Simulated scan of single mutants.
Amino acid sequence: MSVIILTELEEGQIKKTSLEAIYYGSKVAEMIGVEAVSLAIGEAEAGDLGVAGAYGANSVMHAGGQELKDANIVAYADILTAAATQVGAKVIVTPKSSLADAVVARTAGALKAGVAGNVTDLPDLSNGFEVTRSVFTGKAFAKTSLSSDVKILAIKKNAITPVTTDATATVSEFTAPVSDIAGKAKVTDTMKATGTVSLPEADLVVSGGRGLKGPEHWQPLLDLADALGATTACSKPVSDLDWRPHHEHVGQTGVKIAPNLYIACGISGAIQHLAGVNSSKVIVVINTDPEAPFFKAADYGIVGDAFEVLPKLTAAVKALK
Score class of each variant (00 low, 15 high):
S2W: 00
E11K: 14
E11S: 13
K16C: 02
T17K: 14
T17R: 13
S18G: 08
L19Q: 15
E20C: 09
Y23H: 15
E35H: 07
A36R: 02
S38Q: 01
E45A: 15
D48S: 14
A54T: 14
A54Q: 15
S59E: 11
Q66A: 12
K69M: 12
K69F: 10
V74L: 11
L80N: 00
A82L: 02
T85V: 03
A89I: 00
V91N: 00
P95M: 05
V103E: 11
A108G: 13
G109H: 11
G109A: 13
L111T: 03
A113R: 01
V115D: 08
S126Y: 11
S134K: 09
A142V: 03
K143T: 11
T144K: 09
N158A: 13
A159G: 02
P162I: 10
T170W: 03
V171M: 03
E173T: 12
P177L: 04
D189A: 14
T190W: 01
T190D: 07
T194D: 13
T196S: 15
P200E: 06
P200Q: 06
E201S: 09
S207W: 01
G208C: 10
K213Y: 07
K213D: 12
Q219W: 02
Q219P: 04
Q219S: 12
P220F: 05
L222P: 01
A225P: 08
G229S: 10
T231I: 08
T232R: 08
K236F: 02
P237N: 05
H246T: 11
H246D: 15
H247G: 07
E248I: 03
Q252Y: 00
P259F: 06
I263W: 06
I263E: 10
V277D: 05
N278W: 00
D289M: 05
P293D: 08
V303F: 00
A315Y: 00
A316W: 00
